[in-house]
């Protein structure tokens, strides 16, 4: 059993609290569809790539322990750097929910007459078992929309460090590619965080600030 990726993302968007932050992959259909469904809301950082999305999300969640953080990743990315599961299991940020869109293939590279290239989750690798073995306190495999709805409701009602490996059907993006790069996505996200948290992230012009301060004392 598996769910449709677009429906998964639509349901996740309904559940994500307004004041939450999302660390998402910017690779492929997950990013394109998430950006479309959420109307490119700046609470989502489309900054993760292969092998770093969970790591980025752990750092963000530890930096802002009072704020709910959602990590949106893909199976190929998680498999590339399993060390991310170790730090997730060691730190266990109670404000972090990780959702893996696990279509068991490398969708974003396209496919040939031989079909899609499978990831290891199409074989014997079990991300839920790996996360559990790494120390993640709550890890589940999700294969239906009903299960997904229950898991997301529990995640956002009860909190806790949760890892959901959601099995999805392969399929090309239903929407066109996003039209921003990592630089623009970063500024969009950090300016939103600055407004949300009421403190600066980017600290440019230190010398000018100092001069301004000194002149105000004269």
């Amino acid at each position: 059993m598996a769910v449709e990726r677009f429906e998964l993302l639509e349901l996740l968007a309904e559940h994500v609290p307004d004041d939450a932050l999302v660390m998402a992959t910017y690779i492929g259909a997950v990013s394109f569809e998430w950006g479309c469904i959420t109307e490119e809301h700046p609470r989502s950082a489309h900054l993760g790539q292969m092998g770093d999305v969970i790591g980025l999300a752990v750092g963000l969640a530890l930096a802002l322990p009072h704020r709910r953080v959602i990590c949106l990743d893909g199976d190929g990315s998680v498999l590339m750097e399993l060390g991310q599961l170790i730090v997730l299991g060691q730190e266990r940020p109670p404000n972090l929910t990780t959702v893996v869109v696990d279509n068991r293939c490398y969708e974003s590279i396209g496919w040939s007459a031989h079909g899609r290239r499978p990831t290891a989750t199409a074989g014997r690798a079990d991300l839920t078992a790996l996360a559990t073995a790494a120390g993640v306190p709550y890890a589940r495999t999700v294969e239906s929309m009903g299960e997904l709805n229950r898991e997301l409701t529990a995640a956002f009602d009860e909190g806790g460090c949760r890892f959901l490996d959601v099995k999805t059907n392969p399929g090309a993006s239903r929407v066109p590619p996003r039209q921003t790069d990592g630089i623009e996505d970063k500024y969009r996200f950090v300016r939103y965080v600055e407004r949300l948290e009421g403190k600066p992230v980017v600290l440019f012009a230190q010398q000018d600030r100092q001069l301004q301060h000194e002149s105000s004392l004269r």
Binding site: G55, A63, L64
Partner: peptide, 26 residues
């Protein structure tokens, strides 16, 4: 300090980058 030990320096870099996005100096 918030100290986050890792078993892979690449993961450590990602964790630091995520923390910076949340306003920390890493």
């Amino acid at each position: 300090f918030t100290y986050v030990p890792v078993c892979n320096e690449g993961v450590g870099f990602s964790v630091c980058a995520g923390a910076w996005l949340g306003g920390r100096k890493t």
